[in-house]
Amino acid sequence: MADGKAKGGRTAQLQHTGLRHGWTTGACATAATTAAYTALLTGEFPDPVTITLPKGQTPAFALAREEKSAGRAMAAVVKDAGDDPDVTHGALVRATVRALPTGSGVVFRAGPGVGTVTRPGLPLAVGEPAINPVPRQMMREHVAAVAERHGGTGDVEIEISVDDGEEIARSTWNPRLGILGGLSILGTTGIVVPYSCSAWIDSIRRGVDVARAAGRRHVAGCTGSTSEKVAVAVHGLPEDALLDMGDFAGAVLKYIRRHPVDRLTIAGGFAKLSKLAAGHLDLHSSRSQVDKGFLAELARRGGADEALAESVAAANTGLDALQQCAARGIPLGDLVAATARDEALAVLRGAPVAVDVICIDRAGTIVGRAP
């Protein structure tokens, strides 16, 4: 169950640029629940309210709303997704806590704006509120801790709601997953990491949708800002035809296979596109490596003698291999581009999409093209 991005990012290594992390809907719901149950037992809302996340972090949340009446208390927190373009950023997450008879345990309800599961295959049973298992556990633990501190039984009904959640959910995959009526309450760590893989891939899909809706028949999937500039310079593409592919070549190709455009340009650094040429669809350094043996074989196909091929196989980096071949007149960049194009066409499986590939070096110089 996933809430989606509103738009894509602009850089492939955002976790190293100091972008601000945010808090999941599950963390917000836990904070609101903790404040509401505390008020139910003590008459006072803690503001800010501090919670403990699964990995030990202890963020504090300011309360945006608070209400109390006989047998119930409601607290609300505004979701802060940090620098992540999450469609739920700014949403008001409410928790209404009601006392239950001793022995009832903790019961979860979906309030307005929170979805209900209607199809099997999700981590919750059909008919359950779309509050994922980790947020449920967080809320149970915090209810128990508040009960211990203030003499409660811990037997409560927790109703989670999100203002305008049903409308926001239309921008997510929830309806397709059979989660109807609103958003999911999510989070496994409590922290929103800017431009996480699943959200980035969803942003790519939305980028294709936006380009198609704007009538763009030629789009470019680019690994970074430098390759994006090259694609614009070569093809004169407008901004809404640019897909921030990052490392997710497979996500671009698979989605365009199902939602074709007339032409796709793939533009990226030589090393990353050599991974695509070798059949990798995830180009991140932690999940695929430049295969110098593969580059040596390409060099042989391009006319390299055995001594050069062995030198390429032993090269320090992909750039080193490229430079060695360039010095001997072997067009390794073009060979990588052509082979990457073949791999892309294989993933497209006959979809009516023309593909061209542009390889660049770190300075943005084109070092290979196909066709």
Rank of each mutant, 00 (worst) to 15 (best):
D3Q: 10
G4R: 03
K5N: 12
G9T: 07
G22Y: 01
T25E: 05
T30M: 07
A31K: 04
A36W: 11
L40M: 11
L41N: 07
T42V: 12
G43T: 11
D47I: 07
P48L: 05
T52V: 15
G56K: 07
T58N: 12
A60G: 15
A62N: 12
L63W: 09
R65L: 13
A70V: 10
G71T: 03
R72N: 08
R72E: 14
M74T: 10
A75C: 13
K79I: 01
D80V: 03
A81D: 02
D83V: 09
V87K: 01
T88E: 00
T88F: 00
H89L: 02
L92A: 01
T96C: 13
T96K: 09
P101F: 04
G105I: 06
G105W: 05
V107A: 11
V107K: 07
V107H: 05
F108R: 01
R109D: 13
G113Q: 00
V117C: 10
V117Y: 02
L122H: 03
L124E: 06
A125Q: 11
G127V: 09
R136D: 07
R136A: 07
M139G: 04
M139S: 04
V146F: 06
H150V: 07
G151N: 04
V162K: 00
D163F: 00
G165M: 00
R176Q: 14
L177S: 06
G182I: 00
L183T: 01
L186Q: 02
L186P: 03
T188M: 06
G190T: 05
G190I: 04
I191F: 03
V192H: 01
S198N: 09
D202P: 09
R217T: 14
R217W: 04
A220L: 13
G224F: 02
S225V: 15
A231V: 10
G236D: 08
E239R: 15
D240H: 09
M245E: 04
F248L: 09
A251L: 06
I256A: 08
P260W: 01
V261G: 11
R263P: 10
L264S: 13
L264N: 12
A267L: 06
F270P: 14
F270K: 03
F270R: 02
S274A: 15
K275V: 14
K275Q: 13
A278S: 12
H280L: 04
H280C: 11
H280E: 12
S288A: 15
V290T: 13
D291M: 08
D291E: 12
F294S: 05
A296Q: 07
E297K: 07
D305F: 10
A309G: 11
N316T: 14
L319H: 09
D320P: 02
L322P: 08
C325R: 01
A326F: 08
A327I: 08
R328I: 11
G329S: 09
A338F: 02
E343F: 09
L345W: 04
V347I: 14
L348D: 07
D361I: 08
A363G: 09
T365Q: 11
T365W: 01
I366T: 13
R369F: 08
